[in-house]
């Protein structure tokens, strides 16, 4: 009998600190599997964000750097420009990427930095205790939107893939989810495509992953997955937002 699914080499044996049913663990595993499959583990620098994944470096068998809130794409830029041989995995949550670090992510994308951004969207601030995030849905109750997000005061959710896809440089942008077998497989495929493109030097890619936060949503993990399928992915449609190589011809004015 052959073992057809085992723990990837990119992860060590520590038990992750995440809550039961948290999406971070699922995505960490996919990243590690993919780096192993593409034989990129030894070249990878993983950038952990500020958020629940701040300690991601406890679990990966790769080099690691921890970035300030929102700054991971800037740190990624520096690393990659210093050593283009490195594979840069910039891992960010929605508070980190879509709030504190909007400037960094927009401009790293606009420059077409040859990095892979894995963006975990769970519509809430996890680490600090379930406060409203830029991605929180209208009407969603959080510890700082106790009556539900009111668009008259707090505006509407920020859609990162759609926003970044308005710039020309990004090579690949896709939104996936973790709520079904089909979507798990699509997520894994998207991560693999992103890393592969980076290894080929093709430019910036971002995979946004709709991910459960059962604790702060106040749901059991299975209920949280159902909520992604029924509610969250209605606000954030899944799909590919960019999959083409940008025009890179240099045109000098006189």
């Amino acid at each position: 009998m052959e073992k057809i699914f085992k723990k990837p080499k990119g992860l060590n044996d520590k038990t992750m600190h995440y809550c039961p049913g948290c999406g971070h663990g699922i995505v960490h595993k996919m990243i590690a599997q993919t780096l192993e499959e593409l034989d990129l583990l030894e070249r990878t620098i993983f950038i952990s964000p500020v958020g629940c994944a701040v300690f991601a470096y406890w679990y990966f068998n790769t080099d690691h750097i921890q970035a300030a809130h929102g700054r991971a794409p800037a740190v990624a830029t520096g690393l990659k420009r210093a050593n283009p041989e490195l594979i840069i995995v910039s891992y960010q949550g929605d508070g980190d990427l879509a709030s504190a670090g909007t400037a960094e992510i927009v401009h790293a994308a606009a420059r077409g930095e040859n990095i892979s951004v894995i963006f975990i969207n769970n519509a809430v601030y996890g680490m600090t205790g379930g406060q409203m995030a830029p991605t929180t849905l209208v009407g969603q109750k959080t510890s700082t939107s106790p009556f539900g997000r009111d668009p008259n005061f707090a505006g509407h959710p920020l859609k990162v893939c759609e926003m970044l896809a308005t710039t020309k440089a990004p090579r690949y942008i896709e939104r996936t989810s973790l709520d079904s077998v089909a979507n798990l497989n699509k997520t894994k495929k998207a991560i693999k495509k992103s890393f592969d493109l980076q290894a080929r030097g093709e430019g910036f890619s971002l995979v946004e992953i709709l991910s459960p936060c059962p604790t702060n949503w106040g749901m059991s993990p299975p209920e949280a997955m159902d909520w992604i399928a029924e509610t969250l992915s209605k606000e954030y449609p899944l799909g590919v937002f960019r999959d083409e190589r940008a025009d890179t011809e240099v045109r000098n004015d006189s």
Binding site: M1, K3, I4, F5, M16, G23, G25, I26, K29, V181
Partner: peptide, 17 residues
Amino acid sequence: CKSCALTCPDSAIEVYK
């Protein structure tokens, strides 16, 4: 089918065939 291993956040499942 490996679905359980794919969804497991703690990489606690191994699949044999």
